[in-house]
Design a protein around this nucleic acid. Sequence first.
RNA 1: GGGCUUGUGGCUUAGCCAGGAUAUAGCGUCGGGCUUCUAACCCGAAUGUCGGGGGUUCGAAUCCCUCCAGGCCCGCCA
Length: 558
Amino acid sequence: MYREYIQKTIDLLREVTGLEDVMITDGGDHADLASTVSFALTKTQRKNPAVIAGELVAVLSAKPEAKGIEISAKGPYINFIFGGDYVAESVRAARRDDYGTLPARTDKVIIEHTSANPNGPLHVGHIRNTVIGDTLVRAFRKAGYPVEAQYYLNDMGRQIAIVAWGVKNLHYDRLPGEKGDEYIVRHYVEANRIAKTKPEIEPEFDSMMEKIEAGDPETVKLFHDSVDICADGIKETLSSMNVVHDKFVRETTFLWNGSMQDVLNRIEKLPTVHHEGQMMYLDLSGEGFGNRYVLRRSNGTSVYAARDLAFHLWKNAQCDRSIDVLGADHKLIGAQLQTTLKLIGERPPEIVHFEFVSLPEGSMTTRGGVFITADELIAETKKRAMEEVTVRRPELSEEERTKIAAAVAVGAVRYDIVKVSAEKSTVFDWKEALDFERQSAPYIQYAHARACSIMEKAKAEGGFAECYEYSDPYELALAKHIARFPYVLEKVVVELRPHLLATYVRDLADLFNSFYRFAPVLKAEGNVRDARLTLVDACRNTLYQALGVLGIEALESM
RNA sequence: GGGCUUGUGGCUUAGCCAGGAUAUAGCGUCGGGCUUCUAACCCGAAUGUCGGGGGUUCGAAUCCCUCCAGGCCCGCCA
């Protein structure tokens, strides 16, 4: 309802003032919505803004469309408070199974995220990409879009050549129960170490890269087997975090199917293309870039940038919006990619960049073996959650406690990451990751479990009748926040900022917990009891829907 | 050196792009609350030159300029 009422308010103000921009702002504690349009009118009306606000309120209130909205002036501010009908309609809507779902759309969206090189396990830096990406995937789906999640799999670059060299030369045995990514990274770290002490092996990497480029069957098998082993491990990690990609797309696809050559042929026609021997690059200095955008090496082999261009054209052919989630270290190449696509008349992808996650002792490197893996983080968090649930719910079976701990752990990890806006660089902190108090997923899951518990008890006591009459401040604050969920969801997909949803759902849990403390539900009587139970049900469902978009399990008991 | 980006109480953080009413929360500190729907909870207190300085504006955490500090990038790696 919130979205509808905002529009209604804007329409009213536009009609009365004749202005396009009616200076709508959040009402804060004062109102559901406010306008500072009276300031803008001082120039033409040459009157005190408070006087103008008073006059506008009189005109606005008299409009039949203003029915159900309480309009008042406080100094120069015009405040709009949405009335009982709004609250009732909002709570009613929030109880529906599909609450939050926006009208279905036909424009298809491809979101590419994670896409970490298959040279080792995902670490806590990579999963910032994963969590942002997967939350966007879920948000777009909830917002009515057909979405495909893709993982772009590097199966031929230099780093993979190093992995393949390791697999070929080191002959490590896979340890019992060892995940594929753990197994592969041992080769990668050791091969890098050897390369550092014996630089004379470097040409071997080059030669392997030339062979994969040429499609040499033995080399292709070696590379792809190594990549597949690692990717299997990565998929297990993703799956444990409730993340599923619809497609894994191999880089070699675009080399071997000729599409990379096609796009290079088109780029050849640009006036700013240059060659030095077989080496080919684009001079993007006209677009504000300082360096060469190299698209083919002097030995004739392809580079990532060229294959990536072909990949993006392939994606464009299948969707209406193409969104990439990339680390801040990819800002430059991302901008170069976008610019180059524009230069050849193609649609550039939308790119969501997120800043770096580092460790207190410095940045993480897969090559140096310096990282905390996502698996370690989840395992540690699970352990901590198990301790917690064992203390709180000793009567539950180990199986039940394990199940709760797993959901709490994954939720805690995902929420910790998604709650911080993407443009902020962060330092990983165990203490914070393992904190299950406020501003954490368990806090929100707990609010949901409390709501479920009330509903369960109400059912046992013989149910309740729907009732939508609210007057208590705690009821109203909660109901009005519930009403904003679809608005927030829409904002997330428009602005590509999933952390807004994290903030929203945390506030929702806050409001529910205050309501829970001060507005007894089951002990209330008559209409009040019915109205509160109806509200608890609406809140329960809103928490459920919002947690779903965040990829966090809404536990019914914990 | 050039580009991008961040800087909000001791720590973490929202608000900034689309400027307005006493700057949002959490952690930590201090004080209170479990015979009452799950205390992974709630309530209260203290804590702020919104990095510094200029400017625009009736009004700036928000826009512009400049300086300072941190991060990232500037590879025939990905």
